[in-house]
Design a protein around this nucleic acid. Structure first.
Lengths: 236, 236
DNA sequence: GCAAAAGTGTTTATGTTACACCCATGT
DNA sequence: ACATGGGTGTAACATAAACACTTTTGC
């Protein structure tokens, strides 16, 4: 069937799920909406795809507009098109995600937002944690169906970390890092403690990291710094 | 930003990648297009999403309209939105895929097609096989960017078969099946031979199949029939 | 009896998990 | 000196891979 004006055209939007570490917690970057719907609510950075604009391009553009974060690689998560998911009308959103080192990507309040902030996942009202411990603050509710998108993104992120045969390397640590720093990230993403010796042994056995001749000096014993090994091709 | 008529609205389409076995080969269901663009070319079944229609719903509807296949579950593959991927204009397509037993889903030439057929993957001009063996027929070129979509779908299908912790069980064999039949499917999807003893041992060890009190009788020694075990919940 | 597919165990290598103590530094 | 995080090896176990011959049927 050739397209014509009889064909409904849903709005097409993009959303970006940016993960990062905040104080040993896995956090996601949200913007506080300036306009209805969900005015004043926290939502994923995102917006409308322009004419003849690629999806990832649109996601990167909206991300920079709304948060100032740029020069990163996104991975596609999927499309969300349930009727009713956006009160403005039939809207299909394509979600992207990645992981960044927050310190290297300062955020700034952009166009359509009144605030931008990293939110630890455990402070958000995702559908999993239906109960809430007293003594904690009220969970933050996110706009639209973004809770669902964030959960899916977390699951995909976990899968990518666990899978050894992944080409996409997220920016999960700065160029030089200690193995403990790297382990903290893994633990936050996977939501469980890892054994220090096994973690280090596996990384070195896989040959994905190598020590550099520098130490991280801090308040205690200095730690060996590592970098990602320039990875040779997989199976030629 | 609130939506208005300034917002471009790309067309939104859906495509379905249906895999099945044909003569020990992995095949995909394609329709021969009746209209331009790509008139006369083979393409994935799919079409325009309707107003306030869910994405999977649209994919199932178009699939049934064009091929007669219905009552199946689809899994989302991803969204394709490169500008220029559709000569009719800016079009975002959301692709779905699954695996079915072809014998249980007879196909029929539907509305916008002049033909429907299962095409073994090795007869298609996918980007991987750039060379073509003499003695074989000319590779079939598929319309739009469907070659890329089919390749992605095959990779995802392989990942799903290999991963033990998969909830979605594709309809890869009839309700009662022999272990050799099941192995043929695995081998076709993965593109390599599997060891018979290891294959059977692993399935039984995982407790995903169980024998039923019936045999498949044929031209040679009868084979034990199995069924999928009614699977108990994973980790309570 | 022979062709064709069904069926069946053991050994080896590899990867995963569990586990406890000493070291180097700043205060 | 002590508190804090950095650093190291081994044994048990589970999983994956390689490998060849006998059995049952139709013809």
């Amino acid at each position: 069937v050739a397209p014509n004006h009889e064909h409904a055209r849903p709005f097409v939007t993009v959303d970006a799920v940016l993960f990062a570490m905040r104080a040993d917690d896995l956090a996601v970057l949200l913007v506080k909406r300036r306009e209805a719907p969900y005015r004043g609510a926290w939502a994923l950075p995102g917006g409308y795809v322009r004419e003849n604009e690629g999806l990832e391009h649109a996601a990167l553009r909206e991300l920079e507009q709304e948060t100032g974060v740029r020069s990163i690689a996104l991975e596609q998560l999927g499309a969300y098109g349930e009727p009713g998911r956006d009160p403005r009308g039939h809207t299909v959103s394509v979600a992207f995600f990645t992981f960044v080192v927050a310190e290297q990507h300062p955020v700034r309040v952009g166009a359509d937002a009144v605030d931008v902030a990293w939110h630890p996942l455990r402070t958000l009202a995702l559908s999993r944690s239906t109960t809430w411990r007293s003594g904690s603050r009220e969970p933050v509710r996110v706009a639209f169906d973004h809770a669902r998108i964030i959960e899916h993104a977390r699951i995909r992120l976990q899968e990518r970390l666990v899978n050894p045969n992944t080409t996409t390397t997220f920016e999960i640590v700065p160029p030089r890092f200690t193995l403990t720093e790297l382990q903290r990230v893994y633990e936050a993403v996977l939501g469980r403690a890892l054994d220090k010796r096994n973690f280090r042994a596996k990384l070195l056995a896989r040959g994905v990291v190598e020590p550099v001749s520098a130490l991280r000096t801090g308040t205690h014993r200095p730690a060996q710094l590592y970098r990602w090994k320039p990875q040779r091709s997989r199976k030629p």
